[in-house]
Amino acid sequence: MSTEANYAGPRRLPRIPPPPPYRPTTGPAASEEPAPDSGPVPPVPPRPAVPPKPSRPAPPGYRDTASFHLAHAEAAWQRTKGAKPPAMKAAQKPAAAETSPQDRSAERAPLPPERDAVAPLGQPGATPPRRPAVRKAVAAACLVLGLGLIGGAAAGSWLAGGPGPGEATAATFGETRGLWHSLPVNTLFPRTLHGTAAGPGGADRTWKRIAVAPDTGCADAFDPLLAKALAPAGCKRLLRADYVDATHSSVITVGVVTTRADAAGMSALDKRFTTERLDSRRDLMPRPYTAPGTLAAGFGPEQRASWSIQVLPDAPLVIYAVSGFADGREVASPEPASEATRTGATSAPAQSGLGHDAAGVADRIEHAFRTEAAKAGEEAE
């Protein structure tokens, strides 16, 4: 039999019945048999709403929930412990009605100052202001400060070498002339001189005194032309001393000439040296002091390498210094300190620092004389 003859068409699946209606598993309705098909299920009536729980009225005197619960918690604590907890004491606040608007405004107002409180004049307990007394004190302080600044400026200007007020110069000019015999030698020529940034390249220098010459006149102390140039000022006394540097490689003679000239004569002499540049001429060099038994024993005219001459226009003084090598070597081309201390100088006095030695020692001896002269002028006044 063929396959086409036996084919009866597609099979149809059996119909699936709908699920049975919901049946509770517990309760009275669980034993009942379901209704065969009684039609649509009636809707379940809504559950009646639960009436709200009547609220307990707050006791009189409390208007907010936080105060109400705080009071009940405090009462419970007192019943159990017999005392109020510290935290509740701090949390409790006074009622708003206890503080009046006037009291609150008074609390916000700034406190009056505790010091220098002055009541208005004309009221009881008023005290007059003390401004006139304060003004007088301030004026006196300004006057004292002004006088101190003027005096300090005058003294500083004179110590620095600049011309000060006429009264200060007149008071110190005459006193300076007698310093050579009234002060100890250690004051005029200190045993040690310190020169901060006084060496080549800004290096510090230190010089030790090795000899002091007896005070003498100016004969044989200068080359002939220098003696002739200084002759108009006169020579009352000459003081000299020898110093060596910290390495004992250079020796320096420093001298102080006390002149007989007045202020006009010293000013004219300073002007001539500056205008004609007499302090830079090799034929106007000071001579060294040869101290036997020291490193300056071989320091003669042929060993001079550099020198410095300073004519003070406001004091009867001429201060000079001349330097050389401590080993006694001769210097063929001496050079003034003003040139040997220039930046980039390549001469032997410049590279060895002999120009800085002459200028540095002369500057510090000048400062020592000016300091003592200023003190003598103050004592004379």
Rank of each mutant, 00 (worst) to 15 (best):
A5T: 12
R260N: 14
P48S: 04
K228N: 09
C142P: 06
D220P: 02
V256A: 03
E335G: 00
H69I: 15
G195F: 01
Y22M: 10
G293D: 10
A246H: 11
Q78G: 07
A117D: 12
Q123H: 06
P334D: 00
L269V: 05
A87E: 08
H248G: 09
A153V: 03
A261M: 11
E366W: 02
P301T: 09
R191K: 14
G82A: 01
A66Y: 14
R272E: 02
L269D: 00
V361N: 02
P21C: 05
A97F: 12
V331L: 08
T247R: 13
A358L: 04
A66T: 15
R177I: 10
P60Q: 14
F222E: 05
T346D: 13
S55F: 08
G234P: 02
T192C: 06
C218G: 01
A49V: 14
F173S: 00
S352Y: 04
L147W: 01
A119L: 15
K53G: 12
R237G: 03
A66M: 15
G217W: 09
S249K: 05
T216A: 15
P200A: 11
P94G: 08
P59T: 01
A264W: 04
A171L: 09
P19C: 08
T26C: 05
A326D: 04
A76R: 10
V134N: 07
C142N: 03
T80Q: 12
D279N: 15
A261W: 04
V244G: 07
A332F: 08
T80G: 10
L149Y: 01
K208V: 02
G360M: 06
A241C: 07
L239R: 10
A58D: 07
R108V: 10
A380L: 13
K89R: 13
V41F: 12
A261D: 00
H69F: 14
K271F: 13
M88W: 11
A297F: 02
Q123S: 13
A71N: 03
T26F: 11
V318A: 06
E381K: 13
G217K: 04
S157R: 07
S308T: 10
E378P: 00
T25Q: 10
H72I: 10
L159H: 03
L70A: 11
P60R: 14
G61E: 07
V118T: 13
D204L: 12
T253E: 00
K228T: 12
D327P: 11
S323E: 05
A168Y: 00
C235D: 12
S55V: 09
S333C: 05
R191L: 09
R130M: 04
E339R: 15
S306D: 00
S280V: 13
A106P: 00
V50F: 09
P18A: 14
A5W: 03
G344Q: 04
A139K: 05
G61I: 11
Q351R: 15
G82V: 02
Q92E: 07
A374S: 13
R272H: 01
Y22D: 08
A73H: 12
F369P: 06
E175A: 09
E74S: 12
H181K: 15
S55I: 10
G151P: 00
G9K: 06
W207Y: 15
V331G: 10
T187C: 08
T259I: 01
T172I: 08
T99G: 08
G164W: 01
A119C: 12
A291T: 05
R135Q: 13
A155N: 00
D357Y: 08
S352H: 06
L238P: 01
